[in-house]
Nucleic acid binder design. Structure first.
Lengths: 197, 197
DNA sequence: TAAAACAACTAACGAATGTTAGCAACCTTT
DNA sequence: AAAGGTTGCTAACATTCGTTAGTTGTTTTA
């Protein structure tokens, strides 16, 4: 009976959630089976249920842990006494870091949230909608004081968020530029597309 | 026995493929069942097999019809005697049009190609890789003659392509700006992020 | 060291999935 | 109107799925 290996401060459930993120990212939530997950963890499928309630619970945990990180970050940035364009840049850099260093989680949260069930689904959609509105509000403030081009702010938000999800392809590519170069290139293009020249 | 309704020049198979695109977009390929599709078409599940070979065939058709359209377009644009930045803009506008007017197909091709089976999977990945290289080559030419900022071209391609897939959110939003405004905003931001000021 | 808790196992369940077989109804052509 | 092809139906299949029950082994607690 090979137990799930755990270090201190990392529960068996955490191990399962992490492996689930990798698996859901690779195959998609629906296509990834609990038997696949069990194999990745090194255990029988039924044994997983000593640690988790359901497959969907895994998705909840992933989606909301990511969503909460972004919500906290925008709380923080909104409060800072810096220009709008600096706020946008900070937010973008945070998105880029998250996408680089917590790839699997963020990716799953981004692509697989559709498979959440209510009430989680509605909650998640709400949280996302509000986040985007707050992001758009920062951009709109920047437009008002002429830091940023006259553009439709919600459209700009869409572009920014989706552009960053392109880091997915960077992860999968064989000839990667460094993470730092990637970040600087993205900032150059995206912020460059916003600022008023 | 209610037959699948067809107009002239549109086969029953076409009807099924179109409905499949909508369904795969809404639920994802794996989560959409043939019984769901049958219901959308107005027929029993087994009856679908008089017109198609398999569920996967539907995905092939969708993915490659989209991929081929993009390949043909880049063939066309490469041959035109215009500046690099104009080529980029033309390509972006084509992507935007496709994403606006053939939303379901394009979205499915973009998100669900992972569920293709070999040899289709490899073919598709190849076609995509080559397309992106050709796109990057256009950008690199623009960098060489100083039309475009010094940036990593493959990264720029990722940003452009993924940014455009953000139109997905525009489709789902209730308060839409017009398609024309959307297009102009996207071009402003994306081309603005590339050009050398 | 005995008892309690935790975490693994095997077996199986009911539901859902893609697909096939066999047959009936419809349409087109002759 | 007969014949043949097309398109639909019902029934069923083999798998796979998420999950539960019941049990055994292992670790922690007292």
């Amino acid at each position: 009976m090979a137990r799930i290996k755990t270090d201190k401060n990392i529960s068996r459930k955490d191990v399962i959630v992490t492996k689930a993120a990798a698996l859901f990212r690779e195959k998609g939530f629906k296509a990834a089976s609990m038997r696949d997950l069990a194999e990745a963890v090194g255990v029988e499928a039924a044994s997983l249920y000593n640690h988790i309630k359901s497959k969907t619970e895994l998705l909840h945990e992933l989606c909301f842990s990511v969503a909460n990180r972004f919500t906290h970050k925008i709380d923080e940035i909104e409060a800072e006494p810096i220009s709008s364009i600096q706020k946008v840049e900070k937010l973008l850099r945070f998105h880029i870091h998250e996408m680089i260093h917590h790839y699997e989680e963020v990716y799953v949260s981004d692509r697989e949230w559709k498979h959440l069930a209510d009430p989680y689904l509605s909650n998640f959609q709400n949280q996302r909608r509000i986040y985007r509105k707050r992001f758009a509000a920062i951009i709109e403030a920047g437009i008002r004081n002429k830091e940023i081009k006259k553009i439709d702010a919600p459209t700009a938000v869409l572009i920014m968020l989706h552009a960053i999800s392109g880091i997915e392809s960077w992860h999968r590519s064989t000839q990667k530029i460094s993470a730092e170069e990637l970040e600087e290139n993205m900032i150059t293009i995206l912020v460059g597309g916003l600022v008023n020249h």
